[in-house]
Design a protein around this nucleic acid. Structure first.
Lengths: 192, 192
DNA sequence: TTTATTGCAGAACAAACGTTCTAATAAAGG
DNA sequence: CCTTTATTAGAACGTTTGTTCTGCAATAAA
């Protein structure tokens, strides 16, 4: 019974995500969304709820996808230094790809986290999970003797996370990919 | 001739700056401004121009003040490592002080730089100047033998700038001051 | 004290916002 | 076919936005 949707639910969600990523939450109006996505107002509301809910859904999707990608990329027996070098290079090429809209989560952390509890919660998940992924991979490396015993994998992980945040800002506002790659090399010197 | 203003022009500008810093540009309405600043709409317009101009003026003021402060703090013959450690600690305590609204420039880089040329220009000034301040101080240290000859002061400066950006985001959204201090120590390991 | 000029308060404005209502449309089951 | 249910397009809603207009108050010079 009933009519079928004229658009792909997941695909349109991704388009909305991309729009939010480029323009931010407040700077993206509902008219922008219906215009760019080619979906009517009512359909958006029926499918995703109001603007805030849509944003939150997109952000959650982005977070999940990011974490999955990171886990996959770091689940590799290569030497840590090489591994993280490649990891950061990929991140810089990706996040900083043409037009460089940066990272939706970092953008949200700046625009919304201080005033929206849900976003703040997701930001904390982002931090905790990525630090966890980094730390566990660094621990393995430490057991294999690739990293000195006196280093704290958790502290190293946090540091790498913080530099990641900086890269996201730089790529969005300055977009100097090459010097970010150089910075990544320097950051990874902390591994010893 | 004529009437005198009932408010201090510089002081109110600082209040506006602080409001923008906490809430961002789009999330701060003109009513918010008149309400919190205790100045009438018309007076704000007469004194500072429209909202965008007011923001830009505040941002420029913030930038100048920041750069001056940094120059002053780094104009010190102490050993670089100590000097930068103190510098970052102060920055973390300041930017991350209670409520931690972060850095107005970093917030602007994320919210406005991609779509506002004037903000983007100020962001580039921010980057160039701070990198310059860092680099020149690092060069002095290198000449004094505090830093190995094979290191590139400009690359080091850029790296430190990028980590600074990350700290601003982390302090705004996560507000974990202590682990930022630990990260700062790790970042400064690149000095050798 | 008058006059000229600037500052201020609040009403008023059009435009844009997020959201909802209304009516027409399309598909699937009977 | 008809009925039912869901989807859609577009008008409409009330708010809020940034900005301006209007009228009055205060100051300093003449």
């Amino acid at each position: 019974m009933s009519r079928t949707k004229e658009f792909d639910e997941a695909e349109v969600l991704d388009q909305a995500l991309e729009l939010f990523r480029v323009r931010g939450f407040k700077h993206t109006s509902f008219s922008d969304l219906t215009g760019e996505l080619g979906v009517s107002r009512q359909s958006l509301y029926d499918t995703y709820g109001d603007k805030q809910t849509l944003y939150q859904t997109a952000l959650k999707r982005y977070l999940d996808r990011s974490l999955d990608g990171m886990r996959r990329k770091l689940d590799d027996p290569a030497p840590v230094r090489e591994l993280f070098t490649g990891f950061f290079d990929a991140l810089i090429s990706g996040t900083c790809s043409n037009g460089s809209p940066g990272c939706l989560m970092v953008n949200s952390m700046v625009e919304l986290a201080p005033h929206d509890a849900a976003t703040r919660a997701l930001a904390h998940v982002h931090a905790r999970e990525i630090e966890g992924i980094f730390a566990s991979r660094l621990s393995v490396a430490q057991r294999k003797g690739e990293i000195a015993q006196d280093k704290d994998p958790v502290a190293l992980a946090r540091f790498l996370y913080h530099t990641m945040l900086g890269f996201a800002v730089a790529s969005r506002a300055l977009g100097d990919r090459e010097s970010l790659r150089v910075s990544a090399r320097l950051a990874l010197q902390v591994l010893g």
